[in-house]
Design a protein around this nucleic acid. Structure first.
Lengths: 158, 158
DNA sequence: TTTTTAGTTCACAAAGTATTGAACTAACTA
DNA sequence: TAGTTAGTTCAATACTTTGTGAACTAAAAA
């Protein structure tokens, strides 16, 4: 119906926009990026469909799309309140740490293709092959050592 | 003029396409991704403008754009041969290691905004704030420890 | 001087993405 | 049963990104 928009301070709007731009660069589509950003900067951590829609001034359709994609991607979740049909959406901040890890593990995707390319390269182009080999070694090294780093962090912060 | 296209084995074409798709996911635009991939899978490591254009079947304009953007981004370089005007383009494989590092350092961009958001969050929403704080700590930890990891790698492989 | 080579530039077309809004559904409420 | 709430779906539009190709430039060759 009318305005379910929540009020944000100038500071919050600026942070929302900056964060959304960063997230778009990371591959989020615009509406999704804004929803995620809103749920991080807003004083309330739980917002309804209408609050999200009106605060961001996007259409119902776009809001629905964005929320559902974020739910499937596990970036947000929702809670319900007994006696209400509305859902209260909130950021899965906890999951971001896993996302960062997943992102770093993505290195191995890349490394696998490089390894396949190396395997079929001709023997002349020796220098080139050696450079590629070093890169592969570097990424293999990271793939081994990063999990060690994660474990150390968990130990230190528990 | 006619066909300057170089011949690629089926295997090479498949790897080229797989790698190009991965690179597009990393933010490369299609033509750039294909040029980079070609320079990695091709038996010859140095290819001319026409060889690139004809092998990839893209227009002159697109080839020119892609090559120039890759040059500015330092992903490729070129060599010349005395007595020839043509440039011979090749991948800067060496630089990829730096690119991986830069990519990981990008974490700190993200972390900086999170810190700003945290600073202005209200004190109620304690759990939420604590989760954010932990994420920030995790990323700070990575930002400190990754350079240590790089150094260790250099030491072991030299 | 004319032609060829090795490109660059840029307006336009084509392809791909995102957003809107209107029509719909499904559950509850009066 | 009629109306309201809380959404979903989707065709059409609007916007963005890519790629094309024709016209251009600048250096070298004939």
């Amino acid at each position: 119906m009318s305005e379910n928009s929540i009020k944000l301070r100038v500071e919050q709007i600026e942070l929302l926009e900056k964060l959304a731009v960063l997230l778009e660069k990371e591959g989020f589509q615009p509406a999704m990026a804004k929803v995620v950003a809103l749920l991080l900067v807003s004083d309330q951590t739980e917002l309804t469909f209408d609050q999200i829609q009106d605060t961001l001034s996007i259409s119902k359709g776009a809001t629905s799309q964005a929320i559902n994609q974020l739910l499937s991607a596990n970036k947000i979740e929702y809670k319900t309140k007994l006696g209400e049909r509305k859902r209260y959406f909130c950021s899965r901040v906890m999951s971001w740490q896993e996302d960062v890890k997943a992102d770093l593990n993505n290195i191995s995707n890349f490394n696998n293709i490089l390894k396949q390319i190396l395997q079929q390269r001709p023997d002349h182009t020796k220098n080139f092959n050696q450079s590629m080999e070093r890169l592969v070694q570097f990424m293999d090294y990271l793939n081994e050592e990063l999990p060690v780093l994660y474990r150390k962090f968990e130990e230190q912060h528990s």
